[in-house]
Design a protein around this nucleic acid. Structure first.
Lengths: 235, 235
DNA sequence: GTCTATAGCCGGATAGAC
DNA sequence: GTCTATCCGGCTATAGAC
């Protein structure tokens, strides 16, 4: 699986994405016309990403947002009840969407190896980079309960990693110098790195698949037992 | 070198730290009595860390800060010219302090190996965890020029890493599958992970030296050339 | 050096016309 | 559905007493 083939199967168009978004929170919007709502929501969310990427969500005023999105202040409030809810919407939908996609991928492909899980996460974070970036940066401002909900997709990813690693360790494909939990924990920041510092790698001319490869080399080697290392080196 | 010995040599007391802080910005404070200023600055900065850890610097009001630090609103303004400057002070001093310490360590010890550089960074980030956390989270709100300045310690670290890795590659101790720049880039998020998620590892009972060991295993293996891998495994 | 009191502004949110 | 106009609270920052 490479990025291109992943996209063909799982990349939603902007319209598809925000249609799902609309239906996920349907009853919360006073705007009932789906066609209009989907379009405006896309504008609002994207403007939010743009503005809070430079400053931060807290520093973004709704006046700025209204200007950037082309809606009036009043118009904005047809889509959100208050500012905080806007942030919440983003967190909750991302969490839902990530979990859904991860489950899809792992089920469909019978893909239960490290490489597949890691690539799925990196590819997803590429497709939804502003979402991931926002969720990472603004997670602090959620209330306890909201954090719990938003963290689920993170936990799912981590548990999938641990599961696969433990499995490999039992089959003695992987070394047990490091606990599965430790490897999983060290893997996660390598996944975040891609969407947090994407500009850096783009600038350097590193493609997403090259990045995945580098991460895989790191992890596979960190996990490799002595007799498998020589093979790895040759491949 | 372990954490304890690092502390003995480099850990500043709170008083020492904020005395340096005071002198670094001396002319900016209207309070001239050093004894008083150092003490109050410590209170203010620590209150800032506490408050912006839960919310964010942007969401922290100066009223909250005045309550938390025990100074009145007016009193605060003897130490800062405005809110933004408070954030700037933290970034600038941290950058200065990190660069200073890294240079000290690498010079004193003739410590020019990967392990030493990585440990230095992780140990430092432990000593100054709130500073590092703050700098990471609030870096977005700096202006372009300020970012450049604050990023210097980051660059220094990265260039030191690259240098050492390239050196090892030339001596054929390290493999060249991955470019030195790539390994350095993948290493940095592993360093940040410790101060960003410290509670997680504390809770799990993982000590800082255990964490360093795990990171070193990851990286050394990612870099190891085939003939050195077997040795590594046995050690 | 530090406080209280207050100026002045800006941001979130709402009412009501269209 | 969307806009304009406006309210009101809270924020940063300052003036001036002690």
């Amino acid at each position: 699986m490479d990025y291109q083939s992943f996209c063909q199967q799982y990349q939603p168009s902007k319209k598809e994405l925000f249609t799902q978004f609309y239906h996920f929170f349907k009853d919360k919007f006073s705007v009932k016309n789906e066609r209009i709502a989907v379009e405006k929501l896309a504008t609002i969310i994207e403007a939010t990403f743009k503005l809070s990427a430079n400053q931060s969500f807290a520093n973004m005023s709704l006046r700025q947002l209204s200007k950037e999105s082309g809606l009036s202040m009043g118009g904005l409030y047809a889509y959100i009840q208050n500012k905080q809810q806007l942030s919440l919407f983003i967190h909750e939908f991302l969490s839902y969407f990530v979990i859904k996609t991860i489950n899809q991928v792992t089920n469909n492909k019978g893909c239960n190896n490290l490489e597949c899980i890691i690539k799925t996460h990196i590819y997803l974070s590429e497709l939804l980079q502003p979402w991931f970036f926002f969720a990472f940066m603004e997670s602090k401002n959620l209330s306890r309960d909201e954090i719990k909900a938003a963290i689920q997709s993170d936990l799912l990813m981590e548990s999938k990693l641990i599961e696969v690693i433990k499995c490999g360790q039992q089959e003695e494909i992987y070394s047990t110098i490091l606990k599965a939990e430790t490897v999983a924990s060290l893997t996660k920041p390598l996944l975040s790195e891609w969407y947090l510092k994407r500009w850096k790698y783009k600038k350097r001319g590193m493609s997403i698949d090259q990045y995945c490869l580098a991460v895989m080399i790191f992890i596979e080697r960190g996990l490799s037992s002595p007799h498998s290392l020589t093979e790895l080196e040759q491949s």
